[in-house]
Design a protein around this nucleic acid. Sequence first.
DNA 1: CACCATGAGATTGTGCACAATATGAAACCG
DNA 2: CGGTTTCATATTGTGCACAATCTCATGGTG
Lengths: 151, 151
Amino acid sequence: MPDAGGSSALDPMLCFAVYSLERRIGRVYAELLAPWGLTYTQYLVLTVLGANQDVPLTIGELGRLLDLDSGTLSPLVKRLEARGLVARHRATDDERVVMVSLTDDGHGLRTELADLQRCLAERMPGDPDEAQDLLRRLHAATARLPRLAGS
Amino acid sequence: MPDAGGSSALDPMLCFAVYSLERRIGRVYAELLAPWGLTYTQYLVLTVLGANQDVPLTIGELGRLLDLDSGTLSPLVKRLEARGLVARHRATDDERVVMVSLTDDGHGLRTELADLQRCLAERMPGDPDEAQDLLRRLHAATARLPRLAGS
DNA sequence: CACCATGAGATTGTGCACAATATGAAACCG
DNA sequence: CGGTTTCATATTGTGCACAATCTCATGGTG
């Protein structure tokens, strides 16, 4: 029982439980990220870039890591570039690929946002063991479902 | 480990696991619903209406059940109306509220879509007990997070 | 070299999600 | 009764998600 509103036809549906939870998590992130004017997906992109220790990632690699397509990432990365958080450069050996890397401002933002992870750890799971177990089950369910068209 | 792409900074993040799973589920539904030209959210609205046995629901009630706001539901319900799947009527006693009900075509579609539930039951969970347990944990996590602004 | 297939990103169009705001109908109050 | 508040829905604007399509560089192949 999600909460108010009483039980409905949706309660036993696993898909709705995931859908509903995802949007509530999104609201929490939106609130936390609002002071920096970032969206959740933008935050994920910065996180992936920051974890890659200054090795630039291509749009394609970002897409594979996040399971997002170019129609989402292309404009999103350009918005991050417009704010000076990332830099986009065409690869010299292959003019088709775009290398995305954090700027100094981007790195600065990343370290500011580190506190945010802690803030969420308290808010989300309940207890660590359960969270770990839930994580494992979610990964298992995800693995059973299709990635984006381009494998 | 979601699958291809190797491990990343995102793997231990519960929020990403939910986000990622939600989109994969969405893709499966999009594929299954494509023959009827329905989106997942439209399908949810029809499901809730169908489960309510011909008692119309207001936009507000739909919003509370689905945890969606009027900015999402208003145009969505109008699209369903344009296809002749639902009817919108102002309440006679209070001209502000809009009553939404399934048309005969809407009922017909609902019964066609019943097979779809079975098709998904096979595809999603793994085993029923685990699915039930996962459902319980997701509800618990959801209950800890905020609903939309208008309680 | 001309020609075609492939592959990486970008663009276009539709729909969802939500904040902020607008509209207009109750409801309340002096 | 006029004025204010409240409440239900609608509208506007931004950004995500994705299918379909486009652009253009690269990599063969004859």
